[in-house]
């Protein structure tokens, strides 16, 4: 046996090697863009990129929780749209701002909890349950609005997207806050511990007396909550809540999570990786726009980056660089 000190330090590096890898990927990307265009590395552009990353990044937090339990949530984009129009109609009906925001968050959470209950009590596979919710939430949003966007809000509300503190946009501050909380929850709380345990081995966790159904439901509820939060920010940003908002966001959120090193098999990964993953996607889109690359090529590049990121991850794993 080796001395504990060395083993521990090694352990720390092994533990975070994956996130360091993703981070260096982001830095290399930044370096390349810095060389390619003078417009990339400016304070205003970096804040611009951070702001653009917020919506997907916040949705991806919920997705990370879900994927850590070895699940999947395809409904986040639709739930986002639904929560957005509910909140927007509350605002238009003259509801006080905090109440309307709460309405959006509750709508998202309820959709998520329904997903959770379908999966735990109804024993549906997560893929199917959330696929159904994806359609139901979208359809409900369309029916509710008659397909038309709800737009035009007070300056107070719009401040959530347009406001700045020391030049940092409010959505970026919200995003950082959410990630700090999520990191804390995953590493320091019972909920976090059980999230990893359920993804690692659901049966062993159940046999250890953990109420697996309850915690899984909570995790899907969280995914819905974060969709609701993203809906608020998106609505404020566009000054409009669209029933067709958030289409395909589930795929972007999954991509950010996976690029960030969370295993689709569950039990492995963390939210810091997801944040970096979301930033990589935003930086990539930003850079490709700055360079004036055709939108067709952009899709190819983004897809390739996702594949390469996961390939590198798997190759490193096979070589036993980290566990």
């Amino acid at each position: 046996m080796r001395p504990n000190g060395i083993a521990l330090r090694q352990n720390f590096l092994l533990h975070h090697a994956r996130q360091l890898g993703t981070l260096s990927g982001l830095l290399v990307l930044g370096l390349v863009l810095w060389v390619l265009t003078p417009h990339f590395l400016t304070l205003s552009n970096l804040l611009n990129v951070a702001e653009q990353a917020t919506i997907i990044a916040i949705v991806a937090v919920g997705m990370t929780f879900v994927i850590l339990t070895a699940g999947i949530d395809l409904s986040v984009g639709s739930v986002l749209a639904f929560a957005g129009v509910v909140m927007a109609s509350a605002l238009h009906a003259g509801a006080p701002l905090p109440f309307a925001l709460l309405a959006g968050l509750v709508t998202g959470t309820v959709c998520g909890l329904v997903n959770g209950l379908l999966i735990t009590l109804g024993r549906l596979p997560p893929f199917i349950a959330t696929l159904g919710m994806m359609s139901v939430a979208r359809g409900t949003a369309l029916m509710y609005t008659g397909g038309r966007p709800i737009s035009g809000f007070s300056e107070n509300f719009r401040w959530l997207a347009t406001g700045e503190v020391l030049r940092v946009p409010i959505p970026v501050i919200v995003m950082i806050g959410i990630y700090a909380i999520a990191f804390f929850v995953l590493t320091r709380t019972k909920l976090g511990r059980y999230t990893y345990a359920i993804g690692g081995n659901e049966e062993a966790t159940h046999l250890s007396g953990v109420n697996v159904r309850f915690y899984k439901t909570v995790v899907y509820g969280l995914a819905g909550l974060f969709s609701g939060l993203a809906a608020i920010l998106l609505t404020a940003r566009l000054n409009s809540a669209q029933p067709i908002a958030g289409m395909m966001y589930e795929l972007d959120a999954i991509a950010a999570t996976v690029i960030g090193g969370t295993s689709l098999l569950g039990g492995e990964g963390n939210v810091l990786g997801t944040l970096i993953g979301a930033l990589i996607m935003a930086v990539l889109r930003n850079g490709l726009n700055l360079l004036g690359v055709s939108s067709f090529l952009q899709q190819v590049v983004i897809g390739s980056v996702i594949i390469v990121a996961v390939l590198i991850d798997m190759a490193l794993k096979r070589r036993g660089k980290y566990s």
Partner: peptide, 16 residues
């Protein structure tokens, strides 16, 4: 119909 993406593109082009 992706209004958010279009907004991002406009923002990025302003940066450019």
């Amino acid at each position: 119909v992706d209004v958010e993406k279009q907004m991002q593109i406009v923002e990025n082009l302003i940066q450019a």
